[in-house]
Nucleic acid binder design. Sequence first.
DNA 1: CCGGCGGACTGAGGCAGATCAAGGTGCCGC
DNA 2: GCGGCACCTTGATCTGCCTCAGTCCGCCGG
Lengths: 241, 241
Amino acid sequence: MRMTSAAAGESRREPCAYCQARPHSLCSAVPDDALSMLATLAVVRDYAKGQVFIEQGAAAEDFFNVTSGTVKLYKLLPDGRQQITGFAGTGHFLGLAVTDTYTFSVQAIEPVRACRFSRSRLRRLMDDCPQVEERLLRTACQELIAAQEQILLLGRKSAQERLATFLLGWSRQADPRAPPAERVRLPMTRGDIADHLGLTIETVSRTFSRFRADGRIRTPSSHEVVITDRPYLERLAAGAV
Amino acid sequence: MRMTSAAAGESRREPCAYCQARPHSLCSAVPDDALSMLATLAVVRDYAKGQVFIEQGAAAEDFFNVTSGTVKLYKLLPDGRQQITGFAGTGHFLGLAVTDTYTFSVQAIEPVRACRFSRSRLRRLMDDCPQVEERLLRTACQELIAAQEQILLLGRKSAQERLATFLLGWSRQADPRAPPAERVRLPMTRGDIADHLGLTIETVSRTFSRFRADGRIRTPSSHEVVITDRPYLERLAAGAV
DNA sequence: CCGGCGGACTGAGGCAGATCAAGGTGCCGC
DNA sequence: GCGGCACCTTGATCTGCCTCAGTCCGCCGG
């Protein structure tokens, strides 16, 4: 499907019923008969690769739902050190960890389309559909579990264990229910992976090379990985000696 | 108030209305007129120092609300590496990051009293009081923010920055609204702090000594810290050079 | 076709924090 | 008062990852 100039603009109304992201997202909690309302609440927007559309510290007025593409969520220290707390793809809701201001920034790492809701409209949606609130709570708990897993990774795992955990997690990410894919597309750069895993770009690169040399993976291109020894990576990721 | 042997046992019924932890906890979302019901849902239990009362991997049947004392939440790797994801004190709810099984363990690091709810009873409470669900969502979002802050710490901060962040956070923890205390009680050991900050016990000890030598803190005892140069620690924690 | 550039890879050397090792200290039971 | 134990501190050495530096590759525009 070609991207038209209209699609690249603001406020394209398209029935949520046909949204490809809906089954993966918060919006699946909205019953069919309320979908027309949902469409009036959200605004579809497109963001170019590299664009920052949530900025840490800014007033948190909008929430987003990614419908295609991938974004990175990150925090910065004043001297420029960056920590990527996670990547978010299709169906992912942005704006849980929010007070009055955003506590993180979000940047598109490839072309992204997202639905934007204002805070008050989300509020209204929650009031009208209690299932939405319940769904948000479940989502928040899942994110909490993922965050604690990341804390374990950053606090106690070696570079190899970190990269193995990351690759396996990403291979499941595409569709959590399907059998995990052996071929993984990595839309982010080595630098992004490093900033996610608490490493440097060089260490990430060296660890990729090591896995490759040891026959654990193949890398047809730098943004594609084929897992060739999943059991080994799984043992590594689990921290088994 | 002396602790009677009855109090140390199971199932002491005391009106939640007088619970000292209530204002800090989930239970404040339950309106006064439903409090008698609340009391019938919860079971008060006491745990000795060192006791593990939630075990990672076990079926998640109960939720807890800490009413006094402090616990540590942690994850283990098969070879014994430990990562403490957080400490929880009075009013803290345990059981957000839960699927069918617990994804972390909980141990009392000092004598602890907690209210125990079964999963079904919490469900009932949520159905009867929608405010409880809303409160849980807010709590989950706060925890998510804290977890992301910890991810930043573990991924990108130096040992000194980690300890400074920890001490300042803990000095605010007592009462988030009150002006932060200069005198901080640390119920956990150096080893626990290390496992929380992704360091070793030796590095934590050395960093305490360094802060002491540099006049940033005083340590009347190993479990008490007096912050004597808060601005410096604050700069350090923020990552300012 | 060529120059520029962002991203990836690799080597050499350095360093923050880990590991190993040895006391020291406070506390409890007896 | 004293032995035992858990915890803390400090010193010496080691090492995994970081830093610095250089090269290569693919891609894009001209």
